[in-house]
Design a protein around this nucleic acid. Structure first.
Length: 267
DNA sequence: CCATGTACCTGAAGGC
DNA sequence: TGCCTTCAGGTACATG
């Protein structure tokens, strides 16, 4: 499941591969994958730069943008020779460049989307500040928490306030901070908010260093799996002993997601 | 405002 | 072997 670290890894790898290339054609193979919300034509436009906000990947062109969301099983891969590339079973969209290279969007479950838009905010209306944005700090994080009654896991999972976290990194961050996933946001002290903010940053930054986590589907732009899954403390460890206290890790449905936590360490 | 449920999808895994 | 059910979870949307 690509979350911020996986998306960041893909963006870093694709940036030198795609920048400067000119689009010849965009071919959707599964109609719903491409959502065109612009009157401008992508054909003939040059890719100026790549960026990321939360789980969105942006390809900035000269007059419009492509925004990619990988959702659950989406992957991007660039191939120097588009002609020799046999189209795999799960290729949902092909971006063809003038030089003959291609960007493939593969997506087993078809949840992923490629949006063609005029400006980034066309897909960012309901997306909050990126979790690694330098403008975010513990004080601002606490300010976002203190007016909300919802459980902290639901808050972190929502992209509305802080963008980029998904199920894996929420569980790992809450464990690192020693906070129970059901704690109401508004009941967290400033010290707890500070600890949680630091944990979120550390968990995400470590995962970026490890090129993301691969559970089943995720691969980077070169088709390689990440290494971060080796360092999970709670995710997918139900019934196994907590590394801190030995209590079996509990799995429970919270905020509609399989949630892993240590009932002893997380209060 | 918030929690819950369903839809979108496919493939893997478990039960019988 | 094979059929059926359940589960995985990012996001949008409907409902209470």
């Amino acid at each position: 499941m690509p979350e911020l670290p996986e998306v960041e890894t893909v963006v870093r790898e694709l940036r030198p591969l795609l920048t400067g290339r000119v689009i010849e054609k965009i071919e959707p193979l599964w109609a719903k994958t491409l959502e065109n919300r612009s009157a401008i034509k992508p054909e003939g436009q040059k890719i100026i730069q790549l960026s990321r906000v939360g789980k969105f990947i942006f390809l900035e062109m000269e007059r419009s943008w492509l925004a990619v969301h990988l959702r659950m099983t989406g992957r991007l891969a660039w191939k120097a020779d588009g002609e020799s590339d046999t189209v795999g079973k799960h290729v949902r969209l092909i971006v063809r460049f003038k030089d003959g290279s291609v960007l493939l969007f593969e997506d087993t479950r078809k949840f992923g989307r490629v949006y063609h838009i005029d400006r980034r905010k066309d897909v960012l209306q309901n997306v909050g500040i990126d979790a690694l944005d330098e403008r975010l700090n513990a004080r601002k994080f606490f300010e976002l928490l203190k007016t909300r009654k919802m459980g902290i896991k639901a808050f972190l999972l929502s992209q509305k306030w802080i963008a980029g976290l998904g199920n894996i990194y929420v569980d790992e961050s809450l464990f690192k901070a020693g906070i129970h996933p059901l704690r109401p946001c508004a009941k967290l002290s400033f010290a707890e908010a500070e600890r949680l903010f630091a944990a979120v940053r550390e968990v995400l930054q470590n995962a970026v260093k490890n090129m993301g986590s691969t559970i089943s589907d995720y691969r980077d732009a070169y088709g390689n799996p990440g290494r971060n899954q080796r360092y999970f403390k709670v995710y997918r460890r139900a019934g196994e002993p907590c590394f801190e206290c030995g209590t079996p890790i509990k799995k429970q449905r919270i905020a509609g997601r399989g949630t892993h936590f240590c009932p002893t360490c997380q209060k």
